[in-house]
Design a binder for these strands. Structure first.
Lengths: 191, 191
DNA sequence: CGGATCGTTGATCAACTTCAACGGTCGTGG
DNA sequence: CCACGACCGTTGAAGTTGATCAACGATCCG
């Protein structure tokens, strides 16, 4: 088992080898190929994914039949449909690998057991959710504050390295604009 | 001290009177008048607010100088600028009472102490953040999925009672459209 | 009663989408 | 190893959604 998750937990709280070994039985590692689906709309959402390497995206199919990406998860991010996961319901989202990705899978029952048995896991996920929530708070602010063009420039400025890793149509999908318009915005740089 | 917060904690975990009494010294209740500010842009964000009665809103001033509401908090919701709170930084947001409101205040130092001393509080806030995060995930989905007109109808359909409580220009601000356009959408109902 | 605030209406305007077409590149099968 | 098709990014024209601006009426509150 890779040390990436252990290192991540360690960023929030002290964790010795013994403690880490104790939680390992609840986790499963998996490799996912590019474009492979981990979760599909309509399924019961049973799992929570931690990205050790690579990139996942979460998207839904909008009313026009177009894939709309709501979130990316790169190294050290957890991802699932949190509503469907908590309630063990059918999900509205799809989760797919953007590139070859290595993940840790935690299923719902296991996560509940971890919370009951290890208070440090309760603490760890309190941090994880707190941070994730804070991040979406900023995402919502940007969605209101910026025009589509500003969204693009802000993304390039703050996530430039990541922008290189993904195809342009996925960036367009995440920013909420059409590939054509994104292309037009990019063209302006040279005029 | 009102029982609203106790009841809320009890929704997630068992809590006896003794335990509740133990955390009370860390909390402060306060009444807030309509339009009174609890937090102002530029200040260090030291506090976390729980609404027992009434309604708060969080907003920022956008590039055009217009107030943009990103979130409402009604009964049983916690609210703060989570990024600024976690890092004890200056906030980018304002928090203001929409109507006469009764809140519980938890300051950052107290919250940290509660986490250290009472594992049930760690658990409680793990739930609170998990739910809040799940809610913003849906909000982001709606922001992408719906046109402004659909945003309005969806809000009326799912939050109709709350919509009655707030003035129309605040609803417009929350939905991300102009009061003029909201007025136009409403007018369509009768044509 | 008088002023400020809120909701409405209509005209004009800007941001962004849609649609159609084209060229380049990449990967796959022959 | 080449050829073909699929996919991706780009361009431009036309169309839509929603913003802006100005003006007016209603209501609320002092």
């Amino acid at each position: 088992m890779s040390q990436v998750l252990k290192a991540h937990i360690n960023k929030f709280l002290p964790l010795n080898d013994e403690e880490y070994s104790a939680i390992l039985p609840y986790l499963k590692v998996q490799k996912v190929k590019k474009k492979q689906n981990l979760m599909t709309e309509g399924e019961i959402c049973k799992q929570h994914y931690f990205v050790e390497k690579g990139c996942l995206r979460k998207f839904f199919i909008n009313e026009k039949g177009v894939e709309q990406t709501t979130e990316f998860a790169i190294e050290n991010w957890w991802m699932t449909d949190h509503i469907a996961y908590e309630r063990q319901h059918a999900t509205l989202f799809n989760i797919q690998a953007v590139e070859h990705t290595e993940i840790v899978i935690l299923d719902y029952q296991s996560q509940e057991k971890l919370f009951e048995q290890f208070s440090f896991m309760e603490r760890y996920f309190r941090f994880v959710y707190q941070r994730a929530f804070a991040a979406t708070q900023m995402r919502i602010k940007f969605l209101f504050d910026y025009s589509k063009e500003e969204m693009y420039h802000h993304f390039i400025k703050t996530q430039g390295a990541f922008a290189q890793r993904i195809p342009q149509y996925l960036l367009a999908s995440y920013l909420g604009l059409t590939p054509e318009y994104l292309s037009e915005i990019r063209a302006k740089r040279f005029s």
